[in-house]
Design a binder for these strands. Structure first.
Lengths: 96, 96
DNA sequence: TAAACTAGTTTATATTATAAACTTAATTAC
DNA sequence: GTAATTAAGTTTATAATATAAACTAGTTTA
């Protein structure tokens, strides 16, 4: 039987966010917005979910004048992502 | 920007179903039930969605005594699946 | 100082996934 | 032979999700 897919990662936008964060040290809210094309509201919600799950850490600070929300993937998040990819490859590889 | 993931395939159960169907020439309702572990109701709904989208073809007949629902992936479904896998591979590295 | 902009959050809505309840027919038990 | 059980599905109800709209709070510009 095929393994379950972590529902937290099996969502297009959250997967996009994690994919971005896996590749860099950190990314701010605006960068995530630009590279996903999603709305602020949607991103805000999904970041919170990822943060609540401990998959990312969020650091809020103040730039020159406006607030800046910085995101970084956590160890837990990295592991969950690896596990997700492995599970997914069981689906994909069956039909090579 | 990362490509969209076909929402019809980006669902655990439907992806399981398609993964099964890609590997065989056809599979009946019970086989799908056993190999996914999902409930009849859920499978019924998802098969209908895949069928409505033209991703699979469903043939209903009568076995020895009980009705038999047979499913087969269509060309359209196969193409959609390939496209989905390709899109997904942009998110993750499947060659790990 | 009023209008417009930046960076977010909260709330409402529309869609989805899923299981529970229902239907229809066949088989078995009494 | 009919009552209970099982088989194979479908339909409906509910819970969870994704998403956008509306809102908040502060900043810059005209």
């Amino acid at each position: 039987m095929l393994p379950d897919l972590d529902p937290l990662l099996h969502s297009q936008l959250r997967l996009q966010i994690i994919t971005i964060l896996v590749g860099v040290q950190s990314a701010d809210f605006n960068h995530i917005m630009e590279s996903t094309g999603a709305t602020r509201g949607n991103i805000s919600v999904q970041l919170k979910k990822l943060s609540d799950a401990g998959y990312i850490t969020i650091t809020k600070s103040f730039g020159k004048s406006y607030p800046v929300t910085n995101c970084e993937i956590s160890n837990k998040g990295r592991l969950a992502f690896e596990k997700y990819v492995e599970a997914l490859s069981k689906y994909i590889n069956l039909n090579k």
